[in-house]
Design a protein around this nucleic acid. Structure first.
Lengths: 109, 109
DNA sequence: AATATATGCAACTAATTGGTTTCATATAAA
DNA sequence: TTTATATGAAACCAATTAGTTGCATATATT
């Protein structure tokens, strides 16, 4: 089964769980209260996120606290890097273009 | 049907198509040659990516050139921003911690 | 010790996905 | 004008997904 950060964030409920947990560690019950779906459905999402290593668990008695594994989010950031380079270079081109037409206007004077 | 950038990049073939097209605009046939799947399967991926506005089309005679819509990739970047803030603040904490123990060592001397 | 709470797993289901093959259409080349 | 090429759409299929309900287990609480 495909288990990666891209598949993990494809589902909107999972993205909401990630955003929720980014702020503070939470138990499955506390998380489930924030959604309209059943506790078990949330539990399945947590399983997926844990298998992708997006979340980590910490057992405290009968409770389990899930927290965000920031390193995994960085993987996404790294993938995005290639496009960031492109869009920055396009801005550079725009800068160069603006400088060019500005120079031309100056030359016209 | 859910059609967003997150769902668009969930599939590895689609991510490969995006990366391929980021470099230069390409026709469906040229793209399909890069993959093991059929031209029609690639065509379906292109349809999804186009519907998500990740790709844009430009018709030239009987050929269609697909190119990347960088703005859509920025949407992803914006979503990531919230986590970037967190991990930067954690690094700040690490910096503060390192400064603290360094000071303590100094005090011990 | 009996009961309540927190959690995960199994079995089932409807919808979606990613692929295939076949067919239709539009443009270019002979 | 006939033929070849580029592309998308339709119908179908197997696998996956996201949800449900019911059950099992472990830890607290009474």
């Amino acid at each position: 089964m495909r288990r990666d950060i891209f598949q993990a964030i494809a589902d909107p409920t999972r993205r909401a769980i990630i955003a929720l947990i980014a702020i503070q560690a939470m138990t499955p019950n506390a998380i489930a209260e924030q959604f309209d779906t059943s506790r078990q459905a949330v539990s399945k999402h947590l399983k997926v996120l844990h298998e992708c290593e997006v979340l980590k668990q910490e057992q405290k008695g009968r409770e389990i606290f899930y927290s965000l594994e920031l390193e995994k989010m960085k993987e996404l950031d790294i993938w995005l890097e290639q496009f960031r380079k492109i869009w920055e270079s396009r801005f550079d081109n725009l800068d160069a273009y603006l400088a060019k037409i500005q120079k031309e206007r100056k030359d016209d004077q």
